[in-house]
Amino acid sequence: MEKVIFAEDRCKGCEMCTAACPKGIIVMAKHLNSMGFHPATVTEQEKCISCGNCYRMCPDQVITVRKEEKK
């Protein structure tokens, strides 16, 4: 299940989230989004710890962060 979701078409490829991620799992996608930027993305969702650092450093509200509910 996705813990971090990127609204790709809002991303301007500024890469600030890539530097903020403590797990270093955010990469810039190969494809272009509707604005012609390489959007940020995460392929290894399982490594995400839902810390929200990427969300905090994103200036364009691209990222939504979720985490498993503690049982």
Binding site: M1, K3, D9, R10, K12, G13, C14, F37, S50, G52, Y55, R56, P59, D60, Q61, I63, T64, V65, R66, K67, E68, E69
Partner: peptide, 20 residues
């Protein structure tokens, strides 16, 4: 799965014109 960080209510959904 609960959402913990998302766009605040007091922001609209509009994309911003600011530079990357």
């Amino acid at each position: 799965m609960i959402t913990i960080y998302e766009r605040p209510q007091s922001l609209t959904a509009n994309t911003m014109h600011y530079c990357p």
